[in-house]
Design a protein around this nucleic acid. Structure first.
Length: 210
DNA sequence: TCGCCGATGGTCT
DNA sequence: GACCATCGGCGAT
């Protein structure tokens, strides 16, 4: 039996969940308080049939085992010396995931600046950057259910995107058949989306509705 | 402001 | 030894 929280992360297409996550609040409980920000950019990885997925062709190793876990679990992995935060979606044994690529800092911003040794949009406008901003530098949380983890997404605390933009995913192997598939979603105009040009930023509303 | 390129570290073959 | 769901600095515009 799935909890209400877990049900958010299954029972509908992964791309739909990825879009629905935009605007939700990521929170990380630490000794020095709660650090967090609103999700502004996500990417959908569709598992065994997706050439860009860690689970492509049923690939299953100890390293990426978490992807096969329950919906709403954390998949925390390392790439080129940087950690990335994935949310496991779909039922167990269905290895799909959503990569968080950008958040807009909201809680304990000073701590994020300190963790990153940087300021401005560079604090959190990339998958490795936002994890470092939260102060995570190990895989300790890999495989944990977000519902009972210090690292979580608060589904009741959110902003509404004005417009959701779609593009191909960043950094994936373009030779794969899904290299150019439109599975990246972001809040149009938000400055904390990775690779946005300054001229495309909405510096007034940050792309949120209202 | 853009694009290139080297560093990065862990995992798998 | 190769492969990467990345980052930041540098040099060319």
């Amino acid at each position: 039996m799935l909890t209400k929280y877990q049900q958010f992360f299954t029972g509908r297409p992964t791309v739909e969940i990825a879009k629905d996550l935009l605007g939700k609040l990521v929170k990380y409980q630490t000794k020095s308080g709660i650090i967090g920000g609103y999700i502004v950019e996500t990417e959908a990885y569709l598992g065994e049939k997706d050439s860009a997925s860690h689970a492509f062709n049923g690939r299953r190793t100890g390293y990426s085992e978490s992807l096969y876990g329950m919906p709403g679990n954390i998949y925390l992995y390392q790439i080129r010396g940087h950690y990335c935060f994935d949310i496991v979606v779909q039922d167990a044994e269905e290895p799909q995931g959503i990569l968080l690529r950008g958040i807009e800092p909201a809680l304990n911003i000073d701590k994020m600046i300190e963790n990153r040794h940087m300021s401005g949009v560079n604090i959190t406008n990339g998958p490795g950057k936002l994890v470092q901003a939260l102060g995570i530098h190990s895989r300790d949380l890999d495989g944990q259910p977000m519902e009972t983890s210090p690292l979580t997404v608060d589904l009741h605390n959110y902003k509404i995107p004005g417009e959701i933009a779609i593009s191909a995913r960043i950094g994936v192997n373009l030779k794969g058949k899904d290299g150019l598939s439109p599975r990246r979603f972001y809040v149009k105009g938000n400055p904390y989306v990775s690779n946005v040009k300054k001229q495309d930023m909405d510096l007034e509303c940050h792309g949120w509705k209202g």
